[in-house]
Computed example of a mutant assay.
Amino acid sequence: MVDNSIKSEDVVAAIIKKDNLYFIAQRRRDKHMGLKWEFPGGKVEANETLQEALIREIYEELNININVYEKIAEERYKDSKINIVLHYFLCSIKDGIISLNEHEAMEWADKTDFDKYDFVVGDGNITSLI
């Protein structure tokens, strides 16, 4: 049962590309949709632009600084626990060494291999666009 009283929240996600590979991360097992793969990011806080939120979230989750380029997609997702509008941006690593602060595992995946990963809802739809 979907709770329609849950207000939608903006969430940002980074499509980090390097050498024709894409960075994906596996959600922590104790989180909603645990152990599924995702493009990292998180919730936009009050008074933040989408780009500012993405830079902050990626630094918090991965300990790296990123360049944020164009927005490539937007998805809406709602279930019994969340109601979100996902904003996807193409990004690259500016500096830093990746450290997983919020995830179980990471991969640099070729987009032809995306079907081998169990993506969170929403992110799975984006894989065909990149």
Rank of each mutant, 00 (worst) to 15 (best):
I82M: 08
H103I: 08
D110I: 05
E61S: 07
E45A: 13
D95V: 11
M106N: 08
I64M: 03
I15A: 01
K116I: 11
L35Y: 05
N83R: 02
I55M: 14
E70F: 08
I55K: 13
E9L: 13
V120E: 06
K71P: 00
K17F: 07
K81W: 11
S92W: 04
S5Y: 14
I24N: 00
G122P: 01
E61L: 06
Y22H: 06
A25W: 02
Y59R: 07
I55D: 12
L21M: 05
F119Q: 09
I84G: 07
T127N: 13
L90C: 07
E61Y: 02
I24C: 00
F89I: 03
I55T: 14
R76K: 15
D10I: 09
E57M: 06
N125S: 15
Y69R: 04
E57W: 01
I84V: 15
R76V: 14
L129A: 06
I15K: 01
I82F: 07
R76H: 15
N101M: 11
A53N: 05
E107H: 06
N83Q: 06
T112P: 01
E9T: 10
L129W: 09
E70Y: 05
R27H: 10
K78I: 12
G96A: 11
G42I: 00
G122M: 02
D30T: 10
N63P: 10
H103E: 11
L100D: 04
S92E: 11
K81T: 13
D10G: 10
I72D: 04
V11F: 11
G122L: 00
I16F: 07
D10L: 10
M106D: 08
V68K: 03
G34C: 02
S128F: 13
K116T: 13
L35N: 14
K71H: 05
L90F: 07
N65P: 07
V12A: 03
Q26L: 08
V11L: 09
G122W: 00
E48K: 03
I130A: 09
R27E: 14
D30W: 11
Y69M: 09
E48V: 02
E52L: 02
A73H: 09
I72K: 02
M106G: 12
I126R: 01
R76N: 14
K111T: 13
K116C: 08
Q51N: 14
D79F: 08
A53V: 03
N67A: 07
S92K: 01
F23E: 04
E38K: 10
